[in-house]
Structure formats: C-alpha cells, structure tokens
C-alpha cells in the first residue's frame, strides 16, 4: 500500500495530462496555467519555508562533529570535522552539499557469516547512487536551459557535447539519461529490498522517486522514441519566460505535456515535501554551526527579558496595606528610614 499508492498517484497524473490534452484539449491549462502556478508555488513556498526556519531560534550550540575541537594550541584540531570558525563551516558545508560527505560514512548492520554474527560494514552504494542522482539531475537541469534561454549560453552546447560524447545512435545518447534512470531505480529498489528501510519508508518517500522516474522516462521517450515538435516546445517555454504566454499553433505531442505536467507537480510539491532539503541542508544547525563553544558563549535567543518583581517593588506596592496589617516593612511610608528610627 505504501508503495502502490504513490505509484498509482504518478500514473494518475500521467493519465490526467494525456486526457487533459488529447481528450479535452486543455493545452492552455497544462501548458501555461499549471506551469506558472507551479513555479510561483515553488518559489514562494521555498522562501516561506526558509524564512520559517530562520525565524526559529536555535537554543543550543549543537554541531555534530567527528573530530577534535579547537582547544589548546598543542592539541591538533580538525577544522574540517569540527570547525571552529566560518571558514571551517563553509568548507565542511561545501563538502557536505557537493559530495555528501556525511553519507560517505554510511554503515549498514547485517547478519553475516556461518554463525550469523551481527556485523557493521561500510555501505557506499547509497552514497554513490545518491551522488550520481543529484549530479545528473543538476546536469540535466542545466542542459534544459536550451529551452529557456535565447540566445543559448555557451556552456549548454558544451554540456550536451560532453553528455553525448559516446556518439551512440541518432540523436546521440546522453549518458546522464542512463545514469539518472539507474540511480533512481537503485534508490527505489533499495527501499523495497532492505527490510529495515522498507519498514520506515512512507508514501512520501516513494512518491518523489516515482515522480522523478516518470519525468525521466517521459523525457527519454521524447528524445529517442516518440518525437515531438521541439521548436514548438521552445516557442511555448520562451513565451512563458518572456511573460507573453501562448500555446503554439501546431501540435506538439502529448508526451511533452505529460513531461511538463509531472515537472509542474514536482515543483509545486517541492516546498512541502522532503525535497525541501535542497534549502534545508543549509539551515541544519548540526552542520552550519561552528564548534566554538569554548571560545564564544552561545546565548539562547529564547532568553527573553524576564519580568522581575523584587521585594522592594513588592513593598512599594503594598507598603500601606502592610503597615496597616502590622507587618514589618523595610521602608516606612513616605518617611526616610533614618527618621523613622
């Protein structure tokens, strides 16, 4: 159920786009309204999420480290594993964002050998597949700029040339197409095969994977198998980004609309799902703080100014009542203490 629900959801989205364009001819809806709406939701949603996190106080200094903190000069500190200044934090964060350094340390517990002993071993496949997936996604994203920029900047043909370097078939096979399919498939299969991972996987874990798989497959279909009118596609995308939206006259092909609709869903879904880690990784307190609690005192921003009510103030308020009840007071009413003696 946890797997089938998101799978059917993605299939339903595909069917919806096909029916909407082929059956109901809602090209304007699927080509203009939904992409615009999705983009606005994405941009606004991401900004809302990030400012939401930025409004949350971080009460404690909680960097998660695995190296020696900077302390005495003769103790060798590791500024990358336990950064004590901004440079160290940036270095560690850059390695985390670009190369998933913490995931590289991933381990897996398993029963191994004849006596089925519990063994902990290094597990690099998740790191490798994750890295391959994220980098190819970025590569493909940049390659798609040829549909959104006019004139096309120099690096886009360069990326395409590098991607099609093997010159297999016509049009040239893009290596990233194969890599992203393999990587996403691995990530799905891993969730299904490992009992522990399957146990903790939710529909929200499968849905983005199936959605991205759908996007990749529809894109691959368009490039290699069911050709579409690419000039029409670019006319549409350029009309969107120049804010003069217009669906071109000729038929483009419904695979394109499926592709576009799934991407729109991905964009709109992005800020409200686990995918928001694109922004969230930068705001992880365990990663973006310097481990300098011995150098700088971390003041809890929760520490609001506490309202005091001292005994002096108490007596000032109730002095007359206290005197009237015969209670001892430090200061007499309207009379300096000395003269009262």
């Amino acid at each position: 159920m946890k797997v089938l629900l998101p799978l059917f959801a993605v299939i339903a989205l595909v069917v919806l786009a096909v029916v909407g364009v082929k059956g109901a001819h809602l090209n304007g809806l699927f080509g203009i309204v939904i992409p615009y709406a999705a983009f606005v939701i994405f941009l606004g949603g991401m900004i809302a999420r990030v400012t939401g996190w930025a409004r949350s106080p971080v009460p404690f200094k909680i960097p998660s480290t695995c190296g020696q903190q900077k302390s005495l000069p003769w103790i060798k500190a590791d500024n990358l594993e336990s950064p004590h200044n901004t440079a160290g934090v940036i270095g560690r964060m850059a390695l985390e964002v670009l190369f998933f350094r913490s995931l590289f340390r991933n381990t897996q517990a398993d029963y191994r050998g004849g006596d089925q002993k519990l063994t902990y071993g290094s597990e690099k496949f998740l790191w490798a597949a994750g890295l391959a997936f994220h980098w190819t996604f970025l590569y493909i994203f940049l390659r798609h700029l040829r549909f959104f920029l006019e004139p096309i900047p120099f690096f886009v043909p360069f990326l395409e040339g590098l991607d099609g370097l093997l010159q297999i078939g016509v049009p040239r096979l893009f290596m990233t197409d194969l890599v992203i399919l393999a990587a996403v498939t691995f990530l799905v299969v891993r969730r299904l095969m490992l009992p522990q991972v399957r146990y903790i996987s939710l529909p929200a874990d499968y849905f983005p994977l199936f959605l991205i798989l759908g996007i990749a497959i529809s894109g691959i279909l368009m490039r290699y198998f069911i050709k579409v009118d690419l000039v029409g596609v670019k006319a549409l995308t350029m009309s969107l980004v120049t804010l003069s939206p217009r669906v071109p006259e000729g038929p483009i092909g419904s695979v394109f609309y499926v592709h576009l609709f799934l991407i729109s869903v991905l964009f709109a879904y992005f800020p409200f799902s686990k995918l928001v880690h694109m922004g969230g990784v930068f705001l992880s307190p365990t990663r973006n703080q310097a481990n300098n609690s011995r150098e700088v005192r971390h003041v809890n921003p929760w520490n609001y100014p506490v309202k005091h009510f001292t005994y002096e103030e108490y007596e000032d308020e109730f002095r007359e009542v206290m005197i009237g009840a015969g209670l001892p007071v430090d200061k007499q009413a309207d009379t300096p203490a000395e003269t009262a003696e």
Binding site: I47, K234, T242, P248
Partner: peptide
C-alpha cells in the same frame, strides 16, 4: 541567490519577447 538562479530565464532576455524562427 536562490531566486536569481531559478528565475534566470525570466530576466536573461531583458524583457524582450522571443520570436519563433
């Protein structure tokens, strides 16, 4: 930076409309 990166297509052309070839 985030918004600038994702809106590149919108300001890259400098407000000109694009003609189909």
């Amino acid at each position: 930076i985030f918004a600038a990166f994702f809106t590149v297509p919108f300001w890259y052309g400098g407000g000109k409309t694009s003609e189909m070839p």
